[in-house]
């Protein structure tokens, strides 16, 4: 009995002394990365890898915790935004979070964050090997002759791949029969089972299937041709220059910190990030997974997210799938 009370007294004293500790130089303790998407996905992997390299530079652990849910990763963003802007909380994210605001998930715009962009894998159009189209022109001719005759799989409405499909449709002036899936992996699986004959996902996600000849790549949805292990996948822009009005919409994997965090801390993180991006493991990861590695920070990174926010928000609004008018949020068209 007495022992317990003494123990509690000691605890109380110790607690007040913990309060009295002086502010130490950043980073004095472990950093947390609140990752808005699930474990095992592309954003998760890239973040875990870069965090491990940054941890080496900063000399503390960086823990990655997946806080998923809401719409456009809003639960994780709230979680990250709700913690103090002291540099001990990062938010791991990707381009799709920019939809959270217009979908009513996040009550702020994306300009509350400072972004760090690791990179991303570009999207491409592929068809199943038994499909009759050998080139993108054959595909476009067929769909124009017979609108909605081809089933196209992509992840759910409002995702990056769906938006790429929409942009492609606008650029060529024809419509596919869009079948939404829970994830990119599920849409590719549907291509394997023959449920859809065309998929739009990223090079990284398709790589193994293309190598095995289970998917036939038709065209990249970026302005440049892509060298896939010696095979050149042509850009769709060459044949359909109109696409450049709507594309490219590229995957941007990275993380963010609250904009109101101290500048000194941001500078330190940016330096650590740049060093981490040069690390051999990160470079190898990028190469293996067909990423275009960006390593952007500060204004450059923020500008990219501003543009993504504008494109995603207005596209969703035009589709009638946005809850909140982007205009009221002050998002320029």
């Amino acid at each position: 009995m007495k022992k317990i009370l003494t123990l509690l007294l000691i605890l109380a004293i110790a607690m007040t002394s913990a309060f009295a500790q002086a502010e130490l130089e950043y980073p004095a303790r472990d950093i947390n990365n609140v990752l808005v998407w699930g474990a095992g996905g592309g954003t998760d992997m890239a973040n875990r890898l870069v965090m491990a390299e940054m941890a080496k530079v900063l000399g503390v652990n960086i823990n990655v915790n997946n806080v998923t849910g809401g719409v456009g990763g809003s639960v994780g963003m709230y979680e990250g935004y709700g913690r103090p802007a002291d540099g001990y909380t990062l938010v791991g994210l990707s381009e799709s979070v920019v939809t959270a605001s217009v979908q009513g998930g996040f009550d702020k715009r994306m300009n509350v964050w400072d972004f760090f962009i690791i990179g991303g894998s570009p999207d491409l159009i592929s068809v199943t090997p038994n499909a009759p189209f050998k080139t993108v022109e054959e595909l476009v001719t067929a769909i124009k002759a017979n609108p909605k005759s081809i089933r196209a799989g992509a992840s759910a409405a409002g995702s990056i791949h769906h938006l790429n499909l929409l942009a492609f449709e606008k650029g060529i002036g024809a419509q596919f029969n869009f079948i939404p899936y829970d994830s990119s992996a599920a849409s590719q699986n549907a291509a394997m089972t023959g449920e859809v004959s065309l998929v739009i996902t990223s090079v990284q996600e398709q790589a193994e299937l293309i190598k095995a000849g289970k998917l036939r790549p038709l065209a990249m949805l970026i302005p440049n041709d892509f060298d896939f292990q010696g095979t050149i996948i042509p850009s769709a822009f060459t044949k359909y220059p109109a696409l450049s009005q709507y594309l490219p919409l590229e995957q941007q994997i990275g993380f963010a910190i609250r904009k109101d965090a101290p500048e000194a801390i941001k500078t330190k993180l940016q330096a650590a990030f740049k060093t981490a991006m040069k690390a051999e493991a990160v470079q190898k990861f990028g190469k293996d997974r067909y990423f275009s590695m960006k390593g952007l920070v500060g204004k450059e990174a923020n500008d990219i997210f501003d543009k993504l926010e504008s494109v995603f928000s207005w596209t969703l609004w035009d589709l009638g799938a946005a809850k909140i008018n982007p205009q009221t949020l002050g998002i320029p068209r």
């Binding site: 607690m15 913990a18 309060f19 472990d30 652990n61 915790n65």
Partner: peptide, 17 residues
């Protein structure tokens, strides 16, 4: 397991120290 706890106050911070 490196899971941040719902509230890290006096005692948990003391343990962290």
């Amino acid at each position: 397991l490196r899971i941040p706890l719902p509230n890290e106050g006096g005692i948990v911070n003391l343990m962290s120290m």
